[in-house]
Design a protein around this nucleic acid. Structure first.
Lengths: 195, 195, 195, 195
DNA sequence: AATGAATGAGGGTTCATTCAT
DNA sequence: GATGAATGAACCCTCATTCAT
């Protein structure tokens, strides 16, 4: 990649970052191309030169975001920490990139962008799930996880809690409950049977 | 309430129902006043006569929805069924009124309507939480729930799972996992220690 | 039609007239909705309320024009004048409504509006041609027209000359040649064989 | 002209050809500089380097076209064929370069480019008309043309028919009528008086 | 000389809201 | 009280043209 392309790529990134930030704070439909252009310090038309349409811009912002999120996810999984800590981090990681993307942004995409969603579906199914399943299986082998429980159910559980935590209002409230929540995660509401 | 007022009230309900249905299917911002007017078989101005602005209409639709949801919630709590079953129903109840309201609709309100949110906050804090706490305490007394776990954490857990289930795509996939999920809910990923 | 509808109809006509005048003077693409709105003394949105889109406005303007032109045509055919004079009028009638519509406007329609063109085709084939054929046949019976020449060819000839005359620049130049042209029309370039 | 200039001239021709083709198929206003640049395999700015503005590009394209058309016209006039055949060819020549140029393109120029039109006017008046007049006079001398009819009228007639034929829809329909039309041209609707 | 990148101005269209009946 | 008609503001997008390399 020569200087030309690098500058071009840099500018594209600027626009993506600006758009991502605005979309996540105010939602996709509330944000006009003009606002993105202003935040990214380019003209509206430049955005069109790079992305052709708002529709497509949203799509690319989304893919950009997904890749970013995937990186963060990898760092946890590859980290040199014990199983329970990994689960904890997966659940409680509040991605800087993603404050409330799951609500507004994701919904928007679900309705509008079949291809975009296909991409994340594919990534999710091919990349994330297998690694989590591996993690669970390892947890079962190490005695951390009940072998009678299906990996799908655990997956669902972690997802649910993780996504709920992404909500700003929720996050503030449950931080002090971290330990309790992990306890619930591991031992359920019936609790640990000490013996 | 005389016949006049009743007819007025009826018309208002028509509009609320029309708006609610449209908002939930397409999102708040995608729906124009004109579309609501058409679906409710009234003129746009009539909507303004009743609700003053779209802003306020959304707010009232929301309150209307919350009341409806509260009714359904009450029916579960007052039902004559065992504790675990109540928990199960609270989690898995997919309100007919609310398919994806939590995502798009709720987000929209969170950002736009401080008063609306205050109302739901208030309702939530004053009506729902106390009743759930009572339920949990009863569960603890009956040995269903670990007394060492804070009610807030349980609340959080149930909320998280419940909301996640509201998503249409999720709901379809986890239905077969119901029992596994309840098992996780009660015994955690470590599982039941049989003895 | 009550007062309401009549006013509505009147307003629609205003817009049609304004649009027609502007289209014919400057061409379809040069004229913006804003300009039509200004000339018709309505807001842009009013135009959209009546016509949905510029595309459709053009179409309706066109149909409006065709009907007008047809009326003028009828007046000539039904007039109480001799055959050669009718031919002359058909050729030389420069419709007030249509200065250069055939060039720019018609071309535009040819490329964009299949349905619009179908309408004029139909009108032309079903209404105009039969009446002209009748006229020619009558001319043949009366000895004005060579029976050996096909009506189609005559039709073509009259059309060609008529359309060419519609061009403003042409019209000015050939007015003094009216008699010569009629002579050519009737006797060709070989000329009348006097005997 | 050295190699440098020749290459430059070649590039200019490429652009002219590309623009002409696009203008004739889609009309002047529908075609953007970007499209021409793409078709001619140059950058937009290159077009500006050569032609300064779209306005001027259109003008030059037009002149380019006129010269081409003139060449074709010359070939007919200088051909070694009889008078009636020449008339026939002048009328029925459907220039490959010019399918519908007379409608859209010509109109556009008429309104926008005084200078461009002046050029064609001048060419027309100084080059084409005199040669046609010569042809008619020769025809009169040879007994093909009625000496009583003004050359202007004949000119007008031929022009009218010729232009009308240029329209694609018309051309298809009247091809089978060629002989009839020539008969009308020569003998009028009254027809040949055989004796 | 040639180009990729950038832009100001403008066009069609939509929408929440108001006016007039 | 209810409605059809009307509107100002804003949005997405395009294009001829210029800038910077």
């Amino acid at each position: 990649m020569d200087g030309f392309e690098r500058r071009r790529e840099q500018k594209k990134m600027n626009i993506l970052e600006a758009a991502l930030a605005l979309f996540m704070e105010y939602g996709v439909q509330k944000i006009s191309i003009a606002e993105i252009a202003k935040k990214a310090n380019v003209s509206q038309v430049t955005i069109y030169n790079y992305f052709d349409s708002k529709h497509n811009l949203v799509r690319e912002v989304f893919l950009y975001y997904v890749d970013k999120a995937m990186d963060e996810f990898d760092q946890i999984l590859n980290g040199d920490i014990a199983f329970p800590e990994k689960i904890k981090q997966i659940i409680f990681t509040k991605k800087e990139t993603a404050n409330q993307i799951h609500e507004d942004f994701y919904q928007y995409l679900m309705k509008e962008y079949t291809t975009g969603v296909n991409y994340i579906e594919k990534m999710y199914v091919e990349q994330i799930i297998p690694r989590l399943i591996d993690l669970f299986n390892e947890g079962k082998k190490l005695g951390y996880v009940d072998p009678n429980v299906s990996n799908e159910a655990i997956l669902f559980f972690i997802q649910a809690v993780h996504e709920y935590i992404q909500r700003e209002d929720v996050y503030q409230k449950i931080l002090p409950l971290t330990e309790d929540i992990m306890r619930l995660m591991f031992y359920g509401i019936v609790g640990k049977k000490e013996n």
